[in-house]
């Protein structure tokens, strides 16, 4: 992809975000009453995040084994209420250690 294309994508995303945040504040005064729509917009952040994670996360490191190790660590830590950065950093460290061990055992090049 050439850099002009990347700039176009980034700028159009930034503008979309600004518009999405600012415009409703000016025009909307009424509440959304529709139960389906309300539920839909409550669900959408978690379904989008999940769709981003799965299945791509398992190919985000050198081997699915280290990715799994990182994912399990992340799920456990965030279940016990650790913050975003701690969870993320520990996932990286876990995957890293897993790969180091696998390399020393000769399973991974």
């Amino acid at each position: 992809m050439n850099s002009q294309n990347i700039y176009i994508i980034l700028i159009s995303m930034a503008i979309t975000m600004i518009a999405l945040r600012a415009i409703p504040l000016l025009f909307f005064k009424k509440k959304i009453e529709n139960k389906f729509l309300k539920s839909f917009f409550t669900y959408i952040p978690s379904t989008v995040l999940t769709a981003l994670i799965v299945p791509e996360v398992f190919s985000s490191t050198s081997t699915p084994v280290s990715a799994w190790a990182g994912v399990i660590m992340a799920v456990v830590l965030s279940y016990f209420g650790r913050g975003l950065f701690t969870v993320s950093a520990c996932a990286v460290i876990t995957s890293f250690i897993t790969e180091v061990i696998m390399r020393s055992m000769g399973i991974l090049n």
Partner: peptide
């Protein structure tokens, strides 16, 4: 090679609490 999982770690930490 393992930094790719960093962003997914953030996402997991955003989803799991809710």
């Amino acid at each position: 090679p393992v930094l790719g999982i960093m962003l997914y770690g953030l996402f997991i930490a955003m989803v799991i609490p809710s």
